[in-house]
Every structure is written in C-alpha cells, then in structure tokens.
Design a binder for these strands. Structure first.
Length: 364
DNA sequence: ATGGTAGTTGAACTA
C-alpha cells in the first residue's frame, strides 16, 4: 500500500564497524575501549557519530564505573558529556516506523465562539487531524492565525452565519477540494477534503433536514446521494479514505434514545438509512476504497453512545441524545485503526458545543 | 403538541 512509509533503516555505523560489531552494539552493547580497538576508520569520526546518535536518543550510554559492584547508570546526554573507556554503548533497536495519530471530527457550532474550548482541547488531546463542522464563519474571518500558534495548519471553506467546514492538521494537507466537484450545492459550504499521508480525509456537514415533510428533508436526501456520487467518482476512489463529519443520521437503534419514538422522524428515517447504507453496505460495483465502515462500531457495541445532545431539552443532563457524528473509513484502513471514542466529557464542560468530538486512532 | 437553548446577525433564522 502506497500510504505506508518505508521504515527508515539507516544506521550511520556500517562503514565504521563490522557487521558483527554492529549486531553486538544492538544486542549487548560494546564498551568504548572495544569500539576504539575494533574501529575500521577514524575513531574520532566514530565518536562524533556516537555523540550525534546519543543526543537524538538513538543510543544509550551505560556507565558502570570500571565494572565495580556499583550499579550501572544510564548517562544522560548533555553538551559537556564525555565518554569513558569502560562506558557501554548500546544502540537502540530500530523501532518500527509506525506512529499513532488521532483523527477527529467535531461539530463545534461556531469556531469563533468555541475558540477557547477548542484550543484547550487540542492542547490536551494532541490530535493530528481535526475536522470541524459548523464553523459559521466566512473565509476572511477564519481564525487561522490562532490555530497556527497552537501548531495546526488549517484549510477551510466557510460562509457567513451558517454551515462551514475546516480541517486542522499538524502537517499541511495536499490536493484540498472545497464543495462538490460537479458544482452541486455550491451556495452552501458543507464539504472539504484533502490528502493526509496518502489517505483522503473528507469532512462533511450533512443538512439537518428539519422534519420529514420539509423541503429541507428532500435536500438532505439529495445531498447524501450527491455525496455518494462524489466519493465514488474516479477522482476520489483511488486512495483509501476517511470520511468524517456530522451526518445528522443515527444509524442504528442503539444510536438514539428511544428508537420506537424516533422511527420515521428526521435523523432516524428509513430513507436516510438507505442513503447511508450506500456508503456502508458491500457493493461489488464499488471500488475497494469506497467500501466504508462505521469505525466507532468496530470498537464499541454499547447503546446510547451519543455525540449530540439537544441544548433545548437539556438533553445532555437528561442523558438523551443521538450518535450522528461519524468516522467512516475504507476497508483497507481497518487493520490500522486502533481505537474510536467519543469525548463526551467536553460536552459537559464550560460553554460546550452541542456535539462532542469523535476520535479515532490510526497507526501508520 | 409546545417550548425549551445556543449561535449569528441585528428580528429572524438554523439547529
């Protein structure tokens, strides 16, 4: 798979040490004295390499004070550090070039009014990619500078008062796309995507739909249909994808408070489920990458794990909400996903959004 | 069945 970075296996030592010594350096460690004697080239160069590796944590130096009974100690690197002949140099084994990253979706219900909460949350959770919905800010006013101070690049697609989406990331995304490729619904800022580590990150804010008799419900269904067309078009389907956002659809009976009461109402309606199933159900005509999965349900089968609670009914305090914010990912990413959680804690905090962040951890 | 709250923009709209 192209998204996997090849592990870096670049020891600086092969040209200065024999293969046996290199192996010994990793397994048991070698004393500075022995290294000097077995050095193939200039010992000064070798020491220089050792100091460099030491300073960046690639090796450790163990001092045993002439192999006396005194307990050996690991010497912390510092500028004035020196090596003694009996010090043992131990090269840390090549750690796999795999890291864990948090990818987040969060309907912030106005990014500007949520700025303090958002910055605090970023500081605490250190996510890699954060997809925001309902930023409610036109592009010229997006708080990119403050987010940059917090260590995040941003791309955004907004409008005045309503809607608006943005993606924050430690590394800048590439090939950023705003809105639908075919021009559908260009007056509403509800869709943005970009490529991160060979994965297309798609961030969407699906219309809420008001009620099933409303024109807005028709719009919601059409939007979901267009979204499916968008991601199954040739220009998206080559890369694995993580599609996240506020879908305004609870997928299953466990995702609403009272399924019988909710059935047929907006956000829990068969026609909405039909549209969502287009993404989730296996379909031989779909490309491999557009077969998506509800990542939260890969890890957590409990009922009532909500991501949204109504301000008006004091839903959070009453424990009544819906799971309508989702992280969907391609089949090919499933084995890389390590967890998926909802941070409902922040929903109970100061000046919360009505939605909680959903976090997945991916190992790449 | 209604209205409850929050956000934005300036009395009405969306969620």
């Amino acid at each position: 798979m192209t998204l996997l970075a090849s592990p870096t296996n670049s020891s600086p030592y092969p040209e200065m040490l024999g293969q046996d010594q290199l192996l010994l350096l990793q397994e048991e460690g070698i004393s500075v004295r022995e290294l000097r004697n077995g050095c193939l080239g200039s010992f000064r160069n070798l020491v220089e390499k050792i100091f460099n590796s030491w300073s960046i944590g690639e090796l450790s130096v163990v001092r045993n004070w002439g192999r006396s009974q005194v307990e050996a100690q690991t010497v912390i690197y510092e500028n004035s550090a020196c090596l003694l002949p009996d010090d043992i140099i131990l090269l840390k084994k090549e750690v796999e070039a795999v890291s864990s990253y948090k990818v987040v979706t969060w309907n912030v219900n106005s990014v500007r009014s949520r700025m303090n909460v958002l910055l605090q949350w970023l500081e605490t959770h250190q996510p890699e990619v954060v997809c925001l919905q309902e930023t409610k800010v036109e592009d010229s006013m997006f708080p990119a500078w403050e987010l940059e101070q917090a260590g995040y690049h941003s791309c955004w697609y907004g409008q005045k008062t309503y809607n608006g989406v943005a993606i924050l990331s430690r590394q800048p995304l590439t090939d950023i796309r705003k809105g639908f490729e075919n021009g559908y619904d260009s007056e509403n800022a509800r869709l943005i995507s970009g490529i991160w580590k060979g994965i297309r990150i798609i961030n969407v804010y699906v219309p809420q739909g008001q009620n099933t008799e409303s024109e807005k419900f028709v719009y919601k269904l059409e939007f979901l249909k267009q979204l499916f067309l968008e991601i199954t078009s040739g220009t998206y389907s080559d890369l694995p994808m993580i599609m996240v956002g506020d879908f305004n659809v609870a997928l299953d009976s466990g995702d609403v408070n009272d399924p019988e009461a909710m059935m047929g109402h907006v956000s829990y309606h068969p026609r909405e489920h039909e549209r969502m199933n287009a993404f989730l159900n296996p379909n031989p005509s779909k490309s491999e990458q557009t077969q998506l999965h509800d990542i939260f349900r890969c890890f957590d089968s409990r009922e009532h794990q909500f991501t949204w609670w109504d301000f008006r009914t004091r839903g959070f305090e009453r424990g009544e909400g819906m799971r309508i914010d989702h992280i969907l990912a391609s089949s090919s990413l499933l084995t890389l996903m390590k967890s998926c959680t909802i941070d409902s804690h922040v929903r109970g905090g100061e000046k919360p959004s009505d939605h909680a962040p959903v976090i997945c951890e991916i190992e790449i």
